[in-house]
Amino acid sequence: MTHYDLAVVGAGIVGLAHALAAARRGKRVVVLERDVQANGASVRNFGFVTVTGQEAGDCWEKARRARDVWAEVAAAAKIPVLLNGLVLTARLSESEAVIDAFLKTPMGEQCRRIDYPEALDFVPALRREAVATALYSPHEIRVESRTAIPLVAKYLAERYGVDYRWQTSVTSVAPPVIETPAGIVEAEAAVVCAGDDFNGLFPGRIAAYGPTRCKLQMLRVKPAAPVSFRTAVQSDLGLGRYLGYSLLPEAQALKARLDAEWTAHRQNGIHLIVTQSADGSFVVGDSHHYAPTPDPFASEAVDRLILDEFDAVLDLPSRTVTERWVGTYASAPDRWRFTDRPSDAVRISVVTAGCGASTAFAIGEETIADLYGDAS
């Protein structure tokens, strides 16, 4: 029986991030995953590593660091970076005030306001009426989630010798004994990264943080004619939702107007994100509905609202929808993540917001430093 330094439960991006941080310290790591491959939020998102707009402080700082690690891993693992940067279009005067206020904060470093011609150079399909002004950020990168996550796992195995136990549920974590239906795995420490599975391992400890689930709807849209974007795209609705903007005092007037005039979008937690894939299609979303157990059904009315905003911002006539899907992730009303410590040798790491892909690599470094001490 192989004896490991660390067992990681969960092969989504949060689990892989912890495996990377430990492996870089020379630890012998095994990742245990109940499915045959990562199949949750990590592969159902935009692949958009978002920095600009994350909540000021810890979240924004983690996103800045995680973006840098993503760049390193993408280059080493031969993961294509499909887009760099973000253009957030603003057609409301209240949005302009939020952008100006944001640019005065430390988070606005290297970001700038741009006009329609420059925005069009980044995103050739922008409608003129959708851009009174725009915010440009150089900080973001975009990968294709459904292929990038398996490539990260493959890279960890080949570069660092990380082992995987696929289709292996974990029933108990008490290092050095990790129990599974297939037998015991021996590891001196463990990190549980089970996403929105709140009732498996350590349910009582997880329940203390009051988590629920967020359900989102997303689509893949194919343009009728080829078009090439240089950046991801967001719109006014993002200024009203992303906490790095919406918590600014100047955002109050914008949120009031959005509530009054974009009522259905706001009630369904909709804001526009558009990222382009290598085949020219776009991943488009998304919506947000909260429940302990969200229903699995996608609403056509919600998809219609998302597409209405897509069409208001982008001029892509005769575009078609080729895929639709639903995802869920952990959420909490008063925090964007938590790390729990059941024992000296065990950590539970959960991102309770939609920024797991954007922050996980930095969270992994923090958790592993705490587990093993700051000395690498």
Rank of each mutant, 00 (worst) to 15 (best):
E158H: 02
V233R: 01
H18G: 10
A174H: 07
A264D: 13
R159G: 02
I114Y: 05
L86W: 02
V346D: 05
V177Q: 13
C193W: 09
E109A: 14
G40R: 11
T367G: 04
R25M: 07
W166P: 07
V177S: 12
F122L: 07
D196G: 02
R341E: 09
F198Q: 14
A264L: 10
S228F: 00
L88R: 04
C59V: 14
P117Q: 06
A19Q: 08
D5Q: 06
I178N: 05
S95Y: 05
R241D: 06
L88V: 12
G195S: 10
V233H: 01
I99M: 14
Q37P: 04
H3K: 15
R127G: 12
P150Q: 05
V321P: 11
A260Q: 10
T52G: 05
Y155A: 13
G53E: 03
S349L: 07
D121N: 15
I13V: 15
A187N: 14
K104S: 12
V350P: 09
R341G: 00
E365G: 09
Q276E: 13
T89Y: 01
R213W: 10
C111N: 03
R241E: 06
A71V: 05
T339H: 00
A56I: 09
D236V: 02
L239Q: 02
P317A: 08
V227Q: 11
E158F: 00
G285W: 07
I273H: 04
I363W: 09
T339N: 00
A362S: 14
G204Q: 14
R24Q: 14
A7I: 09
A71W: 00
Y164E: 05
